[in-house]
Amino acid sequence: MIAFEDVAHDYGGGPLFREVSVRLEPGSFHFLTGPSGAGKSTFLKLCYGELLPSFGVVRLMDRDVRTLSRDALAETRERIGVVHQDCQFLDHLSVEQNVGLPLTATGRPLREADLSDLLGWVGLGEQAEALPPTLSGGERQRAALARAIIAAPNVLLADEPTGNLDWEMSQRLMMLMIELNRMGTAVLIATHDLQLIRFAKAQVNARVMRIAGRRLQIAGADL
């Protein structure tokens, strides 16, 4: 689904990481951890084609990202849901319009009932008409999650999705992602919150990857 083959990335000051080879299989659950600045966000950006690797091959849905046209890359992104820590929205549109964007902006039909169900599932049924700036941090993260999954993506990528949330809200958001994974979506979460990883590993069979010393290590069960 997403495969890295001997990938290195360099912003110009030496490789952030190198010799990274890993595959994210359908239905898998991965955490990506490591110290700040290790390259977790860069790794995620490579996963949805926002960045191209400096070296090696990144395959998205079995296609080399370098060979994708701009439209083909956009089409590939339809199958990848992304949640950022800062979860940007179009602040002049309502929550439900923002959540529906992955479908409406790509010309796919949006059923009001599905949208309503999804907002209810993430606990935002009451805030459907609200504007994003009026939402709390937790509500914004859940809205971003709803937007990331409304198009039923094959993969969900989340970059520090609980970075601004309290523990209770973090658990709630994590349970939503675990539930999504149980429905078949592959999940990759970049986080440095080991407590959250332990919480998730108690619920789901998750693998932990760690970027350290400019290499990607697949961690064992113990953290």
Binding site: E78, H84, L101, A105, R147
Partner: peptide, 16 residues
Amino acid sequence: GQVIRVLRLVGARDRF
């Protein structure tokens, strides 16, 4: 810029 970033993120084509 934020509008473009968000639209790109959700898979919108350049034409849209």
